[in-house]
């Protein structure tokens, strides 16, 4: 009974995860993007904790704690600090009409379900239903990277891809070995720090954080040389 309850809980969390991914895509303001990103981290840690409790893999608690601290707190805060210090225009600038993006996202989600469904039938794990949602989340995060102008939103997209992969790992195999997870967590942290440093440098060099502006000035330099 408790297993089936846990399964329902995990399925519910997975649904929320998908919702958050859509929400990330739909936001207009940078601040709310970060809010939803933090929410995604928290959701991840809750999922990890639930799986740990129901499957008895104790090391997943550590993963859950790490996800909460790192992905729910630290990373959003770091990014927020960057935005504040650099005085980035606090609006998300999409390359594509938002409605079109959402339609695309819907299609991608359907596609992910269609592709992953045959695999789910093989799995014996109680978390197997989350596989397709995790895949959908990865693709949605990639879509976010593709359709946003600002470098920061692309970094958020990149981190969201990582979150979704983490989610997929929990769903598919009850989490990766702890040592791997710690390694990845640190990698992501370092990546975020490096991104932060880069933003400063890029702004100093190009006077902008928009990807197009960087290209424009690179192309100009090519022409001069």
């Amino acid at each position: 009974m408790i297993i089936s309850f846990a399964q329902q809980l995990i399925d519910g969390l997975a649904a929320l995860m998908l919702l958050v991914s859509f929400a990330l895509l739909a936001q207009h303001r940078m601040l709310s993007v970060l809010h939803w990103f933090a929410a995604q981290g928290v959701l991840l840690s809750i999922t990890a904790a639930v799986v740990a409790y129901s499957s008895g893999h104790d090391e997943l608690y550590a993963s859950a704690a790490m996800a909460f601290l790192l992905k729910g707190m630290l990373l959003p805060w770091l990014l927020w600090r960057v935005i504040r210090q650099l005085h980035v225009h606090r609006e998300v600038e999409p390359l594509m009409n938002n409605a079109v993006t959402m339609m695309l996202a819907l299609a991608i989600t359907l596609f992910a379900f269609h592709v992953i469904h045959p695999i789910e039938n093989i799995s014996e794990l109680m978390t197997r239903n989350t596989m397709s949602i995790a895949t959908a989340c990865v693709l949605l995060a990639m879509l976010m990277m593709m359709t946003r102008k600002k470098a920061i939103t692309q970094v958020v997209g990149f981190l969201a891809v990582e979150n979704s992969l983490f989610f997929a790992a929990i769903g598919a195999t009850n989490g990766m070995p702890l040592i791997v997870e710690i390694g990845i967590a640190f990698d992501v942290l370092i990546a975020a720090l490096i991104f932060g440093v880069f933003f400063f440098e890029i702004r100093n060099t190009f006077d902008s954080l928009e990807v197009d502006a960087m290209q424009a000035s690179l192309v100009d330099k090519d022409d001069e040389s």
Partner: peptide, 22 residues
Amino acid sequence: YGIHTNLTWTFVTVILLLALFA
């Protein structure tokens, strides 16, 4: 030209591979 273009190519490749082999 374009981080976005490159990302789009990556994305399309992933989707195509998924569609082909899944």
